[in-house]
Design a protein around this nucleic acid. Structure first.
Length: 920
RNA sequence: GGGCGGUUAGCUCAGCGGUAGAGCGUCUCGUUUACACCGAGAGGGCCGGCGGUUCGAAUCCGUCACCGCCCA
């Protein structure tokens, strides 16, 4: 590119910048410039917030990606939006903080490392807790940089030196502080109740981590003998026959026509031989199954409630691995010939739940206690990580009283302290928050924040930030030092995530950052984690900080493939954003994402779309090359108000318009409209018309003063374009900014967002340019329809043209000739020549004498078609105006508009009619 | 079962009370001071169905159908 003269001295940086700007490469090569520019920004500290500044802060907290994860399309979407907002606000002069960080992702990360260990033939239980955690930290060290590197590739302007990790010391302190406070307030407590137990991961999980899957199974009808009435049975229907070992009742609806009479009697639990009551409970739906249900309080959430209502025992018959355990029913087993056989039941011990199911069903069938099997489809809860059916299990866990914490959060949204975009998501938020259940926060994992609770020898719990604190409490409690054992469990990952908006700022320390950047401005995220994360941040933020964590919640859709299918490994339709960046550049990917991100819509994205929008980036590059070739150079002293040419004034007015559109779109979170406004302005205004109109001025013999003004305006507007588009396509805009020398290298990121400027005579200039544009378009259209080859210019004659029109023609003669392929443009004084084509431009008739080039029949058909179309329109308008109700009730301007439309159509029809007559 | 969203040009989507728009694709023509990742022009739609409100409905209301999510 630039070949430095070997004899020359080493170039100074300023010289190098100027020299670089000499010639833009004919092709834009994102792969070369992106790393250089990103490094430039990062090294210059361009992403850094400034706690000491006077500017209004603008804060976005990154939704922390999994530390060991890698960038997927969903990330690309959410981070592009966030970066666009941050770069825009930063240019507007806000003190922008985009807080980076990653999440330890308890279950997910532990699973990954366990899988690695399994490949080595190891098991974490053999290693012990400490060695295992060491291994996880090692894995984090190895793979933890991937996602942050990838974020850089995307161009994300995060304040990297402030990067946090949910398990680092500061954030761990925040977790402990919060846990201890909530515990002291009674908002965190231990409780023994049913939890969703994931037998694969061997941990409790929260309601949210359970997903229901539709499973085609069976409904087994079992015959339970009525006690004391040989030969009498009550038939219960169940989808889970294996839990029958733990049944402690049979429930029927109190109004059941047949079974209602059995209430108060007892049934004999087959196989086990235990006597269980038949109870009346409205939970039993007379319409479903047989109308009688077996009640297993320890293994079903509904049965648990029934069990509570009727004071039933709640023996567990499945253990933590979902294998049969008999410890809690052993005593009650008796032999009843033909009905119960403890030996058989004992043979089930240690069997997996589905094997036990098969064995139990077979045994019941053998005993003729199986009435029938019906095919049945039902919703089976599965753990969202482990993917196996969840087993409701009676255990003691730590809970957070979400009901209390939810109230202020609901109120904050109701009163508009925090606003959702799009607003409809508020309904989703309210629906869940108003019916929120206690949040199970303990997990039987090793990777995570260990619960800050210690147990004394007698099981007394001491909650404190550290062991010393717990020991002090124990000393008071016991009157002496006792050995304390810390709770083995860790906290749900989302517990620490909930503190993210303030823990990242240094809380519980009273840092300047906490004071300055909390509450944040916008939270950008997908709807899938409104419950997991957004709601919990709202609750914790309000409770711990006394204020909402953010003013606005922008919820975007999901990224899907071109066909609208969810991307998934199993479908094989996953698109890697890094590959798209490699192929088309980060700008192309970012622009595509913005262009396709409508409100409340999923984004269907494939490589083809990114390829399409890469065309826009290339177009901008080429337009800039053209500007450069024609001597457009930034001029710091340029004053937009000083321009005199209509073209300059028109372009500046259009620029104002684009600035207003882009700003309004971003303010409204309309990324699609923002992208569209930039696209239209660059392509359809700047390139298609301004540069084309400017071309004649860059030829020899053109007015040098006019050319100079156009060069200045062009350079100025190109600069405005680079600013306007920088938030979405930061790399190409910064590169052009630097090459042209609009500022120091890597300075566009810190340049002011443009605002409209006063343009004297803008309206007049707009009228003139619009007129010329329409003239050119009409001539082009007629020529194309007449199939006149572009190589054959023709005269353009204007009948009825005013002096003003002639002035315009004179001023734009060269451009009109070029763009409309006109050999001459002049007023027509006499009759319209035979064999001409024509078109109407307001009061002017454009005449193209095309003798020999036009087919009379084609022109006649064209004119007739045009006339008929107008006639149909005119008829509709006339009918409307004939309607007295319309004229009296519609607003005056609408009526006037229709009158004008009718008049215009009629005069155009007359002109077309005359032209047809002339053709004969 | 309850709730939310969607249904507009071949495709992807804007528009959300005043005679239907964009991008891409299609067709025709074309290399003119950047750009064929280009330029010019054209064709293409009873705005899911049915009712209603209104002078006027793609737009508001009701209802149905289909698709997709969420919750039970």
């Amino acid at each position: 590119m630039v070949n430095a003269d070997p004899g020359r001295r080493m170039p100074s940086p300023a010289w190098a910048a100027r020299e670089r700007a000499m010639t833009l490469d004919s092709r834009f090569t994102p792969g070369e410039i992106e790393p250089r520019l990103y490094e430039g920004w990062e090294n210059a500290g361009s992403f850094a917030c400034d706690p000491a500044s006077n500017a209004t802060p603008f804060t976005i907290m990154i939704p922390p990606p999994n530390v060991t994860g890698s960038l997927h399309m969903g990330h690309a979407l959410t981070f592009t939006i966030q970066d666009t907002l941050v770069r825009w606000r930063r240019m507007q002069g806000r003190d922008a903080l985009w807080q980076p960080g990653t999440d330890h992702a308890g279950i997910a990360t532990q699973m990954v490392v366990e899988r690695l260990l399994a490949a080595e033939g190891k098991d974490r239980r053999d290693m012990g807790r400490e060695a295992f955690l060491e291994r996880v930290w090692q894995w984090k060290a190895e793979s933890g940089g991937t996602i942050t590197r990838q974020l850089r590739r995307l161009g994300a302007s995060l304040d990297w030196p402030r990067e946090r990790f949910t398990m680092d010391d500061g954030l761990s302190a925040a977790v402990k502080e919060t846990f201890v406070k909530l515990h002291s307030e009674g908002l965190i407590y231990r409780d023994r109740r049913l939890v969703n137990w994931d037998p694969k991961l061997q941990t409790a999980i929260s309601d949210l981590e359970v997903e229901n899957r539709e499973i085609r199974g069976s409904l087994w009808h079992l015959r339970y003998p009525i006690e004391g009435e040989p030969g009498q049975f009550i038939i219960v229907a169940t989808t889970r026959p294996e839990t029958m070992l733990g049944d402690t009742a049979v429930a029927v609806h109190p109004d059941h026509p047949v079974y209602g009479a059995l209430i108060g009697k007892r049934a004999i639990l087959p196989l086990v031989g235990r006597s269980i009551p038949i109870v009346g409970d409205t939970y039993a739906d007379p319409e479903k199954g047989t109308g009688a249900v077996k009640i297993t309080p320890a293994h079903d959430f509904n049965d648990f409630e029934v069990g509570r209502r009727h004071n039933l025992p709640m023996p567990s018959v499945l253990d933590r691995q979902a294998m049969v355990t008999l410890a809690e029913i052993e005593d009650a087993m008796t032999t009843i010939p033909g009905i119960a056989d403890p030996e058989f039941v004992r043979s089930l011990a240690g069997q997996a739940r589905f094997a036990a199911r098969a064995a139990i069903v077979a045994e019941l069938e053998r005993l003729e206690l199986l009435d029938k099997i019906e095919p049945h489809t039902n919703q089976v809860p599965h753990g969202d990580r482990g993917g196996v059916p969840v087993e409701p299990l009676l255990t003691t866990q730590w809970y957070c009283n979400a009901g209390v914490l939810a109230k202020p959060a609901i109120e904050a949204v109701e009163t508009g302290k925090t606003v959702f975009y799009p607003k409809q998501w508020e309904n989703t938020f309210f629906a869940w928050m108003r019916d929120i259940q206690p949040w199970c926060i303990s997990r039987q994992l090793w990777w995570g924040h260990r619960i800050p609770a210690w147990y004394g020898p007698d099981g007394t719990v001491f909650v404190a930030k550290d062991e010393a604190g717990a020991a002090a409490q124990a000393r008071v409690h016991y009157g002496r030092d006792e050995v304390l054992v810390q709770d083995e469990d860790v906290l749900d990952t989302w517990f620490s995530s909930a503190l993210w908006p303030f823990s990242t700022l240094g809380w519980p320390e009273q840092t300047p950052e906490v004071a300055r950047y909390y509450p944040g401005d916008v939270l950008v995220t997908g709807f899938d984690i409104i419950f997991f994360w957004v709601a919990r941040m709202m609750m914790m933020g309000l409770h711990m900080m006394g204020d909402v964590p953010f003013r606005t919640i922008y919820i975007h859709g999901l990224v899907r493939d071109e066909k609208g299918q969810k991307m998934s490994k199993s479908r094989g339709n996953v698109i890697d954003p890094l590959e798209l960046i490699d192929s088309y550049g980060a700008d192309a990917l970012r622009f595509t994402i913005c262009a396709l991100t409508g409100p409340g819509r999923d984004v269907k994205l494939g490589a083809a779309r990114v390829q399409d929008y890469r065309g826009f980036v290339t177009k901008l590059w080429n337009a800039a090359r053209f500007c450069e070739m024609n001597g457009m150079r930034p001029d710091a002293g340029f004053d937009p108000a000083s321009v005199t040419l209509p073209l300059s004034r028109w372009l500046l007015a259009e620029t104002n318009n684009a600035i207003r559109e882009a700003t309004a779109a971003l303010e409204a979170y309309r990324f699609d409209e923002y992208a569209a406004a930039g696209y239209r302005f660059v392509w359809n205004t700047f390139c298609d018309w301004f540069l084309e109109f400017a071309k004649p001025l860059f030829t020899e013999g053109a007015d040098p003063a006019a050319a100079a003004e156009i060069r200045s305006v062009g350079a100025y507007v190109l600069g405005q374009i680079l600013r306007l588009l920088h938030p979405v396509i930061p790399f190409v805009t910064e590169e052009l900014w630097d090459r042209f020398g609009y500022g120091e290298p890597c300075s566009l990121i810190g340049t002011a967002w443009p605002s409209p400027v006063a343009v004297p005579g803008a309206e007049q200039a707009r009228e003139e340019l619009d007129w010329v544009v329409r003239l050119i378009t009409l001539v082009r259209s007629v020529r194309a329809e007449m199939n006149v080859p572009p190589s054959k210019p023709s005269p353009v004659l204007l009948q009825g043209v005013s002096a003003e029109g002639l002035g315009r023609v004179d001023r734009w003669l060269d451009a009109i000739k070029r763009l409309a392929r006109a050999s001459e443009v002049s007023a027509l004084t006499g009759d319209i020549p035979r064999e001409s084509a024509q078109a109407g431009l307001d009061d002017v008739t454009i005449v193209l004498p095309l003798a020999g080039l036009i087919d009379i029949a084609v022109e006649r058909a064209r004119l007739a078609k045009e006339r008929d179309k107008l006639a149909a329109d005119a008829k509709k308008t006339a009918q409307k105006l004939a309607n007295a109700d319309f004229v009296s009730r519609a607003p005056d301007e609408v009526v006037a508009e229709n009158r004008e439309r009718l008049a215009a159509a009629e005069s155009e029809i007359a002109r077309l009619q005359a032209a047809l007559m002339r053709l004969g």
